[in-house]
Design a protein around this nucleic acid. Structure first.
Lengths: 210, 210
DNA sequence: TTTTATTGATTGAACATTCAATAAAAAAAT
DNA sequence: ATTTTTTTATTGAATGTTCAATCAATAAAA
């Protein structure tokens, strides 16, 4: 089997095996041996390709966050409009993308989230991601309302999205992504409807009268 | 030092030390020796009073959830009205009670939440608590809207509350409980305003419950 | 023959738990 | 009141386990 160019293959294999192991037994019991067995390789290979267990964990979290970012970006770039509402909906949909909410990914995400509180490496990744979601939301809301109000809207919608993820990751049945998306969109509707009532629609796109 | 009646004192001491240790270094590095040192006792005492590390962890989580439940109950019982809105506000306030959102408690809570995915003992406690929050919210919303709508409102408000907690536990500055409470209350206002627009407000105050 | 990829036994560190030993307080006896 | 005995609380060294990391050995491909 030893061919040249194994590195990218093995890295991917091991990252996937890490998520599977965490999904199975949790982060605390996801030992290098268990992960290696999941990938069908020996334990030593992890240190060889990732420099150690920590390196593998960081690479795994990085992949999850990258995939999440890609899912959001893809949906936003597919939009033909620049309507803030459409972009906000795309951000919501991207966060509940199918590929992100399946068992292994969701559980791994939550496990990393918790452990990022005390692991500087993971905390950095976490913060970048958190801020990106908040900044994206805030930027779109700014088209529709004053600064402070936009900030609160972004904070609240971000909390709603994360809360739905969190509760979905914990329920035995897993996250019902259709329902989660619907609840988040309903909330967005309410935020924008509230706004309509207060400001006599400043700019951007034509909106229905209430 | 050895007096009679040490048990309740030591148990409390050790539970508090557990939260402090988890706040300091995270669940993964909260060893029995570190916890014991925090409490100023020897490691062996943990097995003596809690049967082992697992017992201490379970007792700690149970205490956090009990305190949270008590904070909610106290606020609801202090109400003179049976207005659903007042009860919903009390539930929100109780969840953002000062004593619950300080550093050690919040971090411990999140750490347990993550690990409850794979520890049956903790999962049981977690589920009981989750369902209680959802059921309480749902019951109050039922006074104000049809069943399915009440369920969605309860799901969404629960997600909002948990999301605010989660984001608060992760930010270095800690949870801004006043802001969190305000955002959650604003959301409740929106939910009820939406409702008012649809149903021509039937009876203002429902009958008191058990 | 050389290079690249992989193995798996070994090593040393960290850990939870146990338990015989100890010490203080309480109770009993003097 | 003083001494002795019993009970309760606590210690910390010893034990056995688990783990991540290492590295010399091996095997396939170039």
């Amino acid at each position: 089997m030893p061919k040249v160019g194994m590195e990218p293959i093995r890295r991917q294999q091991l990252i996937k095996a890490t998520m599977a192991a965490i999904d199975d037994v949790g982060l605390a019991d996801a030992t290098v041996m268990r992960i290696a067995r999941h990938a069908g390789v020996s334990a030593g290979i992890i240190s060889h390709y990732f420099g150690g267990k920590d390196g593998l964990m960081e690479a795994t979290m990085r992949q999850i966050l990258n995939d999440l970012g890609d899912a959001v970006s893809a949906r936003r770039q597919a939009l033909s409009t620049s309507s803030p509402r459409a972009h906000l909906e795309a951000i919501i949909d991207g966060n509940f993308d199918r590929s992100q909410v399946t068992g292994p990914v969701a559980k791994t995400w939550l496990a990393f989230w918790a452990s990022s509180m005390h692991q500087p490496q993971l905390q950095r990744l976490q913060n970048v991601n958190d801020r990106r979601l908040y900044a994206n939301l805030c930027h779109q809301f700014r088209f529709l309302m004053p600064r402070e109000q936009a900030r609160d809207a972004a904070r609240a919608l971000a909390a709603m999205i994360d809360g739905l993820w969190l509760r979905g990751a914990l329920t035995p049945e897993g996250l019902d992504s259709d329902r989660a998306r619907r609840l988040a969109r309903d909330y967005l509707d309410q935020l924008l409807r509230t706004q309509d009532a207060r400001t006599p629609r400043p700019s951007h796109e034509p909106q229905p009268e209430s």
